[in-house]
Every structure is written in C-alpha cells, then in structure tokens.
Nucleic acid binder design. Sequence first.
DNA 1: CGTTAATATATAGGAGTCCTATATATTTTC
DNA 2: GAAAATATATAGGACTCCTATATATTAACG
Lengths: 215, 215
Amino acid sequence: METPKTPLSIDTRIREGLSRVGMVLRVDEWNRAKATGLNPTQLSILTLLEGREKDGLGVKEIAAHLGVSQPTATDSINALERKGFLAKRQGAADKRAVSVVLTADGASALNATDTGEGLAAQAIGALDHGEQEDLLVTLIKMIRRLQEADAIPVQRMCVTCRYFAPFAHADAARPHHCKFVDAAFGQRELRIDCRDHVEADPASRAATWDAFQTG
Amino acid sequence: METPKTPLSIDTRIREGLSRVGMVLRVDEWNRAKATGLNPTQLSILTLLEGREKDGLGVKEIAAHLGVSQPTATDSINALERKGFLAKRQGAADKRAVSVVLTADGASALNATDTGEGLAAQAIGALDHGEQEDLLVTLIKMIRRLQEADAIPVQRMCVTCRYFAPFAHADAARPHHCKFVDAAFGQRELRIDCRDHVEADPASRAATWDAFQTG
DNA sequence: CGTTAATATATAGGAGTCCTATATATTTTC
DNA sequence: GAAAATATATAGGACTCCTATATATTAACG
C-alpha cells in the first residue's frame, strides 16, 4: 500500500488523457493511410496542402504546421514528390523559396482515404451534443492561445478570421455569421481549418475574441 | 469565391482540433526527452512502466498501449535496453513471455525530464477551472468508451476502479471517495493512470459509471 | 497423449521519420 | 558592397514502423 507520489496536477492528467486519445487518432490515420501507401505524416502534409492550391506552402511552413524540424519536412516532402502526390514549384518573388502544391494524384489519394469511420469518431460519438460542442470550443480556445503565443503557426479558424461575426444573431442555434459566405451558423459549425480564412488584424481579432467569449 | 466542399461534421472538426493539440504535446515531449537522449516513444514506454514495477509489462501489452505493432514495440524496447533504462525478465509462469521493467537508471532518467512547463501546459492553463474540469471528464468519457469497445487496453482510471465510489459525499468540492486510500476527492483529481488501480468487475463497473454520469 | 492450433516474442528486410550540424543560394540590412 | 539573416538542401545516424515469417511454448482436443 504505497502512498501515491506527488499528486499529479490537473494539467498533467489532461495531458495524459489527450495523449491517450491522440494515440487513437494516430492509429486511425494509419488505417486511413495504408490503402494508399501513405503514412500518417504524409497524410497530414497532403491534408495541409488541400485547400491551399493557389499559393501552396513553403517547406518551413509545413515543418511548423507539423511540429518537426525543417530537414524532416524536406524528407517527407521528397518522399511524397517521389510518389507524385505533390510538386515543388520555385518561389515567384523569392528564388530561395519553394512552393509545395498538391498534384491531381495527391488530391485523389487524399479523397480515396475514407475519413468517415474510425475509433476517434466512435469516441467522439460517445459524447452528447452539448459535450461535443463544449469540447470543440475548448479546443479552439487552446489552439488560439498557442497561436497567440507564437507556439504554432496561424490556424485558419473562424475565431481569428476577418469574416467572422460572433453572436450576430438572436437565434441561439445559429448565433454566428460568416461574412464571406454571408450565412448564419452555429457553435457546432465553427471551423478549425477553413480554406476561405483571412486573418483579421490584431485589434479586431482581439475584439472578435472578446465578443465570442462573452457570448 | 469557391463554395466550401461538403461541410465537415463536428466529428471531423474535433479531430482536427485534437490533432493540433496533439502535435503540441509531441513537441513538448521532444523537448522533455532530448536532455536524456530519449525520444517521445521511448519516453512513453518508460512512463508506462513507471508504477508497474511489481509485475512489469509484456511486449504485447506495451505495443497495445502505444498503439503500434508488436515488432515495433520490440524495437523500441531493445533500444531502451541498450541504454540500460529497462530490463527484460523471463516470465515466471509462461516461458514464452517476457516481463519488461524499469531499471534504476530508467527511473532517474524519467525523473530528470521535468514534466512541468511546456506548450501544452500553457494551453491548458488558458482554460478556466470549470473548463479544465469539463475537459478532463470529457476525455475520461472518451477513453472509457474506447476501452469498453476493446479499442485500447485497460486504462487505470478511477472510473473503472473497484475502489472508486462516485458521489459518495455531499461536499460538492470533493464528492468522490477512494476506498483504497480512504479519502474524499474532487472531479479535478480524477486519475487517468493510477498505480493503485484495480479493475472492477463488469457489473459494478457499469453501476459505477452510471452513478458517476448521473452524478 | 500426442498432434494441431494458438500465443508470445524475435528476426529479417525495407521505407521513412526525425534529429543535429552544416552547406548553398538568395535576400536584406546597414 | 560586406555582413547578417533567411529558405532550403545535404550528410550522417539512430530509430520508428510496417509486413511477413521463424521460433519456442502453452493450450486444446480428439
């Protein structure tokens, strides 16, 4: 009957929980990816490039999004280039730079991986609607904090978008408004990575966040 | 002005959010591990073995906890054995089996990695107390579901422990009771991986969960 | 009781991730 | 225009991670 060591803080236990769930996400990704001969890292890169077909992304940006070093990103990009799933174009203005874009093959490989079912979806499905919504909002809050702290690159979330008008409507089910598509939407529809995102300037971003939080 | 493709379900967006946060967890782990010459996978294994010094764990079990194949687990275990951070003992009853245990060196390497600060801790710190608590409970709910579905191995959580008496006290701050240490504790103290965990039988596990949920 | 099936782990082989350190080519800066 | 900063690539090495298969034991069953 040992007494437990230093009692763990709630931070630590949340991290433990996130890491368990994260493990399952990774397993799902292996299953998704296997069919197309990809692995989770490669799948992440293709996903990242989807919806950025205009400008592509630089090697450094990809590394930052993946949370790996730049040479590692080069490695994985090369692996995908060999497979013909993406292409490197020389940067227009800056000749040092490179612009990585999805090829047609890459896009179809991505579509071939059915994103539908998986263990993670099952776990999320075990939550009721309110919990799902709260979880989404909590994650958004965490991600935003990391973004504000420059710990991760800019995410294309509604809450930092210039087109986002939080709580613009009285309708409790669809309180928010997207000025880009000019439509109302609900908390449950909040995006983590919207292809139409345009970052708002810091001042209005802060104001938007404030309005979003105080609901 | 492209119209967005098929609108993503909330499942998908929660997965996106979890994966962003998971990326940060991984970066934190690299930073933690680097000092001791480890990598995140190795760190996970050592963490897993901590608090199981009596019986150790089998290769297969370690693989299941990590969500990797058995040969991969063998690889990583061998790497750690080379470094002297763990040892393999032959199984007592079953001579095929192996029991992997932490060595003293392994334990101190683990302690050397300061678990304190990191990006994830910062992101979690951005949440208020209520949100942290809700997040912890939500994660527990998800993990339990995965466990019940045999998608992940048994986790040593309070909610599946025979010593756990949910909402046994009137005190709102410390409603739960742990019959092992015979003490009251709060939602915020719920464990994800308790070394004193003993799995309850299915029937009482279900009853406990029910009591916990309807709290 | 002995053959067959199941289990726990290890090996083999190979692609790819991931790191640090450093080289190369271009901007940028003063 | 030289020095500092930036974007990417290379080199070298440890390790992760897979599938397929081999080995040793234990369990199952006719």
